[in-house]
């Protein structure tokens, strides 16, 4: 039995690494971002990618869908996009011989394994809210009927931080549903050169399908089996509590600049990401280091700054870095 578990863990690591390599063929640099995207995939979460145009956000999502043999949909979010354009709608359907007519559900692009919500902040809040149920419950309810989404289901949303004209910031409830918010950095000189050579030649790098959707679901379940010691869970919980200014654990920066801290979803995120990190490190237990590894990506979009923080241009990442440095793994008197 333990051999089976060990083999599953090995398979998981192998799949993860293979996918990483395949995506890396197209995405130059940003290996850490690819790891986080794959972590989010196996944790069953969604990704919000933020970065300036042209740095490969969409390419990253498309590549993920390709290597995982996923049904891939892309929605370009615009101000006139309607919820029905995403989730689908009830339509009058006519049989082929035109003898019968019935009202049926026309599935929207959300019914896929990987949904690329491109420039998600350009749609109105109403349209953005169409994704709330699908992201959390992984189903769509129309006309009183729930339609489950295919498994695995993952939303990869992108947003542009520069163009604020005509955009609608994502509501907190929507943001909270993303496992990670990943800031895609502008490539450096070497990466730019590689991008140039890869994309301007006569041939393009082809990616291989290395994993099926079923395998992904299986690994998602496997990941959840990784045990975690109570003191590590408490560490994750204390990190979350420390983001709340009204709590004793919070740091002075949090007290000064944060209006509202991370939700309980954040602790789920930290633990799930920690479990994946533990497996990738060939361990069957989660360490505090695993928790810390993706803490900033998991928490940065869940902190809501107050007016003072916004006015002074305080960075969420800066607050979180200090917070993580200050919270001890084992508080004094731990038993």
């Amino acid at each position: 039995m333990s051999d089976k578990t060990t083999k599953q863990a090995d398979d998981f690591r192998k799949a993860f690494m293979t996918m990483h390599e395949e995506i890396g063929k197209r995405i130059v640099g940003n290996k850490e971002i690819i790891r986080k995207v794959l972590t989010s995939l196996f944790a069953g979460g969604h990704i919000l990618l933020e970065g300036v145009p042209g740095i490969g956000k969409t390419m990253l999502c498309k590549s993920l869908a390709e290597v995982a043999d996923f049904d891939f949909s892309r929605i370009q979010f615009t101000p006139d996009l309607m919820p029905a354009d995403i989730v689908g709608t009830q339509m009058l359907l006519e049989s082929a011989d035109h003898s019968e007519r019935s009202v049926g559900f026309q599935k929207g692009p959300v019914f896929c394994n990987a949904l690329l919500a491109d420039e998600i902040n350009r749609a109105t809040p109403k349209t953005q809210s169409a994704l709330l149920e699908s992201m959390q419950e992984k189903r769509v309810t129309i006309g009183g009927i729930s339609h489950p989404l295919p498994q695995p289901f993952m939303v990869l949303a992108t947003q542009n931080p520069l163009e604020m004209e005509g955009t609608y910031p994502l509501p907190e409830a929507q943001l909270d549903r993303f496992l990670f918010k990943i800031i895609v950095q502008f490539p450096d000189l070497d990466d730019l050169q590689r991008i140039s050579s890869l994309t301007t030649g006569s041939t393009t790098e082809e990616t291989n399908k290395v994993i099926t959707a079923e395998e992904v679901v299986k690994f998602q379940q496997f990941v959840r089996q990784v045990p975690i010691a109570p003191h590590v869970e408490r560490y994750a919980a204390r990190l979350i509590l420390a983001t709340h200014p009204e709590k004793d654990l919070s740091t002075p920066e949090v007290k000064q600049y944060v209006r509202y801290g991370a939700s309980p979803r954040a602790v789920q995120t930290l633990v799930l990401a920690g479990k994946i990190n533990a497996l990738l490190d060939n361990r069957f237990h989660v360490s505090c280091e695993d928790i810390r590894k993706d803490a900033i990506s998991a928490l940065r979009h869940r902190l809501i700054l107050n007016f003072e923080g916004e006015a002074e241009g305080i960075s969420n990442d800066g607050i979180l870095e200090r917070l993580i440095a200050e919270i001890r793994e084992l508080p004094a008197g731990s038993r």
């Binding site: 010691a229 003191h231 590590v232 237990h285 989660v286 280091e289 084992l330």
Partner: peptide, 11 residues
Amino acid sequence: LKDRFSSALYF
């Protein structure tokens, strides 16, 4: 050891 001993203490 990345919390091996402390986790194993619970396990």
